[in-house]
Amino acid sequence: MFQGGVAHAAPHSGYDDAGPQVRAMQDDDTQNPGFLWVQQGETLWTEAAGSRATSCATCHGPVTAMRGVAARYPAFNPATATPITLAQRINHCRTEHQGATRLPPESDALLALSTLVAVQSRGLPLAIDDTGPLRPFIAAGETFFRTRQGQLNLACATCHEERAGHHLGGALIPEGHANGYPQYRLEWQKLGSFPRRLRACMLGVRAEPLPADAPDATNIELYLAVRARGLTVETPAVRP
């Protein structure tokens, strides 16, 4: 078991730190802008793509069959012996199973499909298997979380453990859980992926931000999912 220090015996979702208006937006599917991407994802799910002219639905049936999947991601990919994120998994199906091109990170299409798959698991507890081959990657993610970086020389843990609940400028520092991605941020005026959030926090400490598919970005996502055990999938979450 990897335990993220004192605060995380019972993790506390960023939802609880958001104001009542932001929470109301997340709670009402007709107001939550993330559902614009869910709706776009539903169209893409049944649209034939690539040289094989197959759609996601051709192989997977109705998208409700994806319930529970996102709660297990990032998951272990035996083919590469590394963890794979949900977005990478979807792109793998695009290239290997559909004969289509990779969807670029942060593109509306990739966000839409990822959000559609993840929302099927909304309300389910995060369920990463930390007893098997993911163990070393989770440990690498925890090391990343605790290592000081950037010109400000701060670790993720400095803010999200030691100073969680305190203010930084105008913003309350949350515990930094990643259980609601892709997520709608009012600041972005848009839905964004976990790697985008990670880049924002890394830029904040003036570190060189990691590209979306960097192994460390996946390891940290994995560690955060283990650390947030007890929380449920909130995708598409809304945050300030």
Binding site: T30, F35, L36, W37, Q39, Q40, T43, D108, A112
Partner: peptide, 8 residues
């Protein structure tokens, strides 16, 4: 982007 979400 996509179509609006309409609820009635």
């Amino acid at each position: 982007m996509a179509r609006p979400l309409i609820n009635v």
